[in-house]
Amino acid sequence: MGRSSKDKRDIYYRLAKEEGWRARSAFKLLQLDEEFNLFKGVSRAVDLCAAPGSWSQVLSRKLRGKDKSEEVKIVAVDLQAMAPLPGVTQIQGDITKISTAQEIIRHFEGQSADLVVCDGAPDVTGLHDVDEYIQAQLLLAALNITTHVLKPGGNFVAKIFRGKDVTLLYSQLKIFFSSVTCAKPRSSRNSSIEAFVVCQNYSPPEGYVPNMSNPLLDHSYDVDFNQLEGPNRIIVPFLACGDLSAFDSDRTYPLQLDSSKAYQYLPPTQPPIRPPYQQACQLRKNNLLAKEDSPSGPLDDALSALHLGTSPDTNSATSGTSD
């Protein structure tokens, strides 16, 4: 298995590198837009859990168009810093904090957003029930901040895992949006349980007051026994989106796609930003992990030798628009 292996297994990974997207997920938003016209008339958009920034990239390219309209305002929120993007304002913050919501509104000069998107996925544990729960919490947190910043009639798009309790999430979303669809872009692989909820026409229940301090949303998201095994499940329509003539994400393609253009390996546009395993990998690379037959040396020395100790945390303050 060479480094080109992934290029064969995943055509969108290869295309993303060729077209300069930070991640293959860019195609998913593009295909969702094809189906739902999500970007139509949008001048204020929010990208939650934005890093590494491929969806912000799509927003930036699609909303601002060729004339680099100043009217369009895009805010990207993430705990991690990411490389700047033209026309995108970055907020390094927590989506469960009211302050983050306020900051978004500030950037929109007091106005609400037309579109909120979220492609965030949590750190997974490999246990499906835990992972699904945490993904649901992330989505509900995104929904919660969305209720603070989205204008009535606005749209919300988020990643969802189609697991055992997904219908409960649908019922939650249907409280706030008149139309909820489960959409699967063709660039998302058939084998993955990932899908996207496209929630259109934000219309919160009468008298609803957004509240960040109390995660009320979760508390009403509980299991009804009938939903488990009975027929009363809340089901939202499913829609596969994207052109059928587009590339097939499940197909393995030869490296030589067409005879006129020779294959050339391209490095990823953006490597992962400080993944949790970075230090452990560095240690393993240098054979410094503790083993039974070799006592681990003083780790501090090893770490300082690797210049990996405690790198100063980047400020949590807002970085300005870089254009």
């Binding site: 393995t252 030589q256 390996y265």
Partner: peptide, 8 residues
Amino acid sequence: IKMDPETR
């Protein structure tokens, strides 16, 4: 470089 797809 192995050019053919790694078929599954």
